[in-house]
Simulated assay, not measured.
Amino acid sequence: MAEKDFANPGAPTRATQPLISRRHMLIGGALAAASGIAYARMPTPHKEPVDPEEFEEMVPRTVGGYEVVSESGVVLPPPDTLRDRLYDNLATRVYSKEQATPIMLLLAYNNTQDGVLQVHRPEVCYPVGGFELTPTQELPIAAAGRTIPSNFFTATGPDRVEQVAYFTRLGSAYPRSWAEQRLSVVRANLAGNIPDGMLMRVSMLSPNRENALEQLRDFAANFIAASPPALQRLLLA
């Protein structure tokens, strides 16, 4: 059907244009397909949340001759507005045995580490509490038939010297720095997963760095061995 230009009666008529052209339909279809692909590839949590009471019950009360004597006295992550979201599960214990320096334990777990919410590394927590840290050194921990990449440093505060060993697990990776931690999250996201995150930290009050290092490494290995299967699955990839 032709359309007449009434403003210019002498002008030739032109064909009426359809409201939606074939080109618009093709563009719209391509955008819809791209949205569908993006939604299908959206990262999803790798593991389900853990009930806080169940998490507390997983923590063994005896480890290689040590027994739980307290749940306080452990340096905690800084109390910022994200802490409750960072740690769905947070457990602290102090273990002791005769003729041995007590060992402090902190376990922190969250089933979603998405690049915005990630476990605080101890190198952040201790300075907030007024501690000065030595350079972090590598500390491989042999446990459950594997070697876990871990870290060790000395934290010196106004009234205490604390030797600290820890490892973090994000998905199947054991990052030893913030850079490695962020990279682990990115790689998991590209694979379509939001990884879970676990932090295990053991420490003791002692000025003797070398002796403390060996004791903490042994305790960490014994703790993993003494943990029930459900906790081992959270500690190890």
Results as ranks from 00 to 15, higher is better:
E57Q: 13
F153K: 01
L90W: 02
A144D: 14
F153N: 08
E98A: 12
V161G: 03
V59I: 14
C125I: 12
L117A: 04
T147F: 06
N89C: 03
T134S: 14
D80V: 05
V50W: 00
D88G: 14
R93G: 08
E71L: 03
K97R: 15
S70E: 13
V69T: 13
P122D: 10
C125H: 07
G145D: 11
A100Y: 06
T154E: 14
R85P: 00
E71K: 07
S96N: 14
R61Q: 12
V94D: 05
A155F: 04
V94P: 10
Y87T: 06
D88I: 02
E48D: 07
P77A: 09
G145R: 06
G157S: 04
N151D: 13
V124M: 11
L107N: 02
G64H: 02
L76T: 09
H120D: 14
L106V: 11
G73Y: 11
M104S: 15
D51C: 02
A144V: 02
S70C: 07
I103D: 09
T136E: 12
V75K: 02
N89H: 00
V75Y: 03
I103L: 13
I148V: 15
R85I: 12
Y126E: 06
D159E: 14
D84C: 00
Y109M: 07
P77V: 05
N151K: 08
P140R: 10
R146Y: 08
D51T: 00
L107F: 05
P60L: 06
M58N: 02
Y87P: 07
S150H: 04
F153E: 09
D84V: 12
T81F: 14
G145I: 08
D51R: 01
A91Q: 02
V161T: 15
D51A: 04
P149C: 06
K97M: 15
T101Y: 02
R83L: 14
F131M: 05
Y87K: 01
